[in-house]
């Protein structure tokens, strides 16, 4: 009985874990997909530790069954090659907030992201995203080398300035690096683009 019970689970493990990992081992990064920089990797870590994944996906699904492409989340569905540098995966399961697979294409402005992280409702009044004031520092006065965030008066602290921490800058660098609008290697669009 034990052997049988173990056999069924190990069978599933082979089918869904071991087989795919050998099949997917040859997937290579598309030439236009940049290897993440140190700062972007730090930003990715901030993304993980503050649980962005619980409200944001990073995947564009098959256009045949969803409106992902037609509602502007990307120009194509995402493929395994888009994720070769990702460990762990951040595909996500909830769209309480919008998909971020191409957020760097849609919203390339770092200042927008910084203010949006500091107080989402300063830019998007109907947003239910949490604010992340702890990624910023409140100081009475900016010191030398401090990067100050411009905050609209309604949301600014009564005194002093809001200084951007390296963590906030890294998170924004990661978000703006999420651009997957290149053609993928196996697609006809990619083959046509080659000489």
């Amino acid at each position: 009985m034990l052997m049988g019970a173990l056999a069924t689970v190990i069978f599933a493990l082979v089918i869904l874990v071991i087989l795919p990992s050998s099949l997917l081992s040859h997937v290579e990064a598309p030439p236009q997909l940049k290897r993440p920089s140190q700062q972007e990797l730090l930003g990715r870590q901030i993304y993980i530790s503050n649980g962005c994944i619980y409200c944001h996906t990073q995947q564009v699904r098959d256009a045949e069954i969803t409106a992902d492409v037609s509602s502007g989340l990307g120009n194509r569905a995402s493929v395994p090659a888009d994720y070769v540098y990702d460990a762990p995966n951040l595909l996500g399961t909830m769209r309480t907030g919008p998909d971020l697979f191409n957020v760097g294409v849609r919203l390339p402005d770092s200042n927008w992201h910084l203010l949006h992280l500091y107080q989402p409702r300063a830019l998007v009044p109907w947003s239910i995203m949490p604010a992340f004031p702890f990624l910023f520092e409140h100081k009475p006065k900016a010191e030398k080398g401090d990067k100050v965030l411009k905050v609209p008066a309604a949301y600014a602290p009564k005194q002093g300035v809001v200084v951007i921490t390296p963590e906030a800058a890294a998170l924004v660098a990661y978000l703006t690096s999420l651009r997957h609008d290149y053609p993928i290697p196996d697609s006809p669009a990619f083959k046509e683009s080659q000489p």
Binding site: L16, V17, L24, V27, V84, Y85, D86, N89
Partner: peptide, 18 residues
């Protein structure tokens, strides 16, 4: 199996949901 540290990319998602 779920906690082994060497999965990357979409494999990591497959193991996650397994």
């Amino acid at each position: 199996a779920g906690n082994l540290p060497f999965y990357r990319g979409v494999e990591s998602a497959a193991v996650n949901w397994f």
